[in-house]
């Protein structure tokens, strides 16, 4: 293509402009470019800039900084514990609600608190704990996490369990399975997509959550999300960017494994 043809092409484009379906996606694509892709590129570039020149020094700094690695370890442990508690508490709730005709109304009651900003709820929780003279620490942090994220476990589970055709349960009973065996051999495996959705939607937000742990532990427990926040507040953009990349990698890896287990069915049953 010759350079002098370009203006002509552009004019043609404008002249032949037609409102096709594709046009409606342009505003969102622009938004994505500005506020998702650009920041990611900035983070990526920042991670490799140290003292104004290109280097891997940020990675080395992080790898040799024991406290940062400890924060990462603690975050993952808190994430796993929160997810397990949410699953153990949420599954029975979702299961019982799916048996009730008015179950979906009650699920809304579980979701209702989510319409209040999580910071406000966490401040409230902090005040309640202080008034009850509960020592703030790991226990209260995990309580706060479970309290904040359990709706994300119940909702996908409730949707999946209530959509399981009741003929599967009958088929299991018909083939000789007792009520307990029916649950473990048919209902539980059939609700796997919901479990996977629930785990993904609790684990990842938990490890990246910030403020909750600080507020509910009097700043004694710092999680990965808080740590990134602190790094940026202290203008340590290089190390902060590296940590953000690690976070991103964690999200992608866990998503990949979840999809692997579930053969990609979780996404379909997310809500």
């Amino acid at each position: 293509m010759k350079l002098k043809d370009l203006p002509k092409k552009a004019i043609d484009k404008v002249k032949n402009f037609r409102l096709t379906r594709r046009v409606f996606s342009y505003p969102y694509i622009l938004f994505l470019l500005l506020f998702v892709v650009t920041p990611l590129v900035i983070v990526l570039v920042n991670a490799f800039i140290y003292d104004g020149s290109l280097s891997f020094q940020n990675f080395v700094d992080l790898a040799t900084d024991g406290s940062s690695l400890k924060v990462l370890g603690t975050s993952i442990v808190v994430g796993i514990v929160t997810t397990v508690i949410c699953l153990l508490l949420g599954y029975p709730v979702a299961y019982i609600l799916s048996k009730w005709k008015s179950g979906s109304v009650i699920v809304v009651l579980f979701i209702l608190p989510m319409w209040v900003n999580f910071l406000i709820r966490t401040y409230a929780l902090q005040t309640i704990f202080e008034n009850m003279a509960v020592t703030l620490g790991m226990g209260t942090v995990i309580f706060g996490m479970v309290y904040n994220f359990i709706p994300f476990m119940i909702m996908p589970l409730h949707t999946t369990i209530s959509n399981i055709d009741k003929s599967f349960k009958e088929a299991a009973q018909d083939l000789g399975a007792s009520p307990v065996a029916t649950f473990f051999k048919s209902t539980l495996p059939l609700s796997l997509p919901g479990i996977i959705s629930g785990i993904t939607m609790v684990f990842i937000p938990t490890i990246s959550a910030f403020a909750i742990s600080q507020l509910l532990s009097n700043n004694s427990i710092i999680l990965f999300g808080d740590s990134i926040n602190l790094k940026f507040e202290n203008k340590l953009y290089g190390v902060g960017s590296v940590m953000s990349l690690i976070m991103l990698a964690l999200v992608l890896v866990s998503n990949f494994f979840m999809n692997k287990i579930n053969k990609g069915e979780a996404a379909k049953n997310l809500w």
């Binding site: 003929s167 599967f168 088929a171 299991a172």
Partner: peptide
Amino acid sequence: FQKYALFPH
């Protein structure tokens, strides 16, 4: 069963 109800898992 009418819809077979074969376990998909």
